[in-house]
Design a binder for these strands. Sequence first.
DNA 1: GCCGAGGTTTACGTTAACGTAAAGGTCTTG
DNA 2: CAAGACCTTTACGTTAACGTAAACCTCGGC
Lengths: 149, 149
Amino acid sequence: MTQPPSTSAPATAQDGPLPRQRRTYSIGELAKMFEVTTRTIRFYEQEGLLAPERRGQTRIYDEKDRVRLKLTLRGKRLGFSLAEIREVVMMYDAMPDGNRRQLRRLIEILADKRSNLERQLEDIRLMQLELDDVERRARDVLASLGDSD
Amino acid sequence: MTQPPSTSAPATAQDGPLPRQRRTYSIGELAKMFEVTTRTIRFYEQEGLLAPERRGQTRIYDEKDRVRLKLTLRGKRLGFSLAEIREVVMMYDAMPDGNRRQLRRLIEILADKRSNLERQLEDIRLMQLELDDVERRARDVLASLGDSD
DNA sequence: GCCGAGGTTTACGTTAACGTAAAGGTCTTG
DNA sequence: CAAGACCTTTACGTTAACGTAAACCTCGGC
């Protein structure tokens, strides 16, 4: 490590109460933390899912950015496309000053995602049963092999 | 419809008991049934996930093929790659005369898929909470708009 | 002063999972 | 027998989500 894990300020004793847990992260730290490459993180930014500050050229990620990355990766694991994720994320950001139409649209989208999740739950349940069945058969065959082979 | 929904035989009265529900399907029927294109179905075959019989040039799918397609599509919805799905499907087929090593390997793979599903369950649970939260906020903002706008 | 461990941009390459188009065979129905 | 409605193969195109490589800057330590 060339640099100590980045904090926004060295924070000596007389600094007083820090401005609310102002921890920051480098791109490399986040990459290790979530086991993705830096390329992936930069790509997500390019796709409008992240917007870290810059200290000169260098990207500085804060807590909010970290949470967003976490949610994005979770969405990905569930098979959502980056476009879908961005759709929700951006509307969420635009919410405070959103008009009725936008808000209703957001709620509509949410309902859609929700039903998507419901189906996935059912799919998982069924898939688990399938796997149970396959495993049972496999164990049966294994047992029937007895001492032969 | 140029052809009546294909059955393996016209099956008149004196045919006696059919050889155990021997219904068959054309590629088009399956496509409509699962709302995919015929291209997709042929692609899955090319990838080794299906192996329908042929009447001349034409593909004839039976009940087993239909189930396999169903499972494949379910796997896809859960974010599995065709390669992963094939891995399980092929080992399942090879099971009867599989040796110990193969069977243990299969069980290993199954455990892996299973833990994958577990994580997805957790992801879904968390994602649902997120969506709940976003929706609640959206409704709040919507309500706070009162009669203005 | 330079070296290594980080960071940066730009840009072309790759993979999975199909889409799409062309060109042709086979029924059956008017 | 011509027109549809199906089916077939072959083959090139497309999209998302990164991987990979080159070429560069910058800082702290020896």
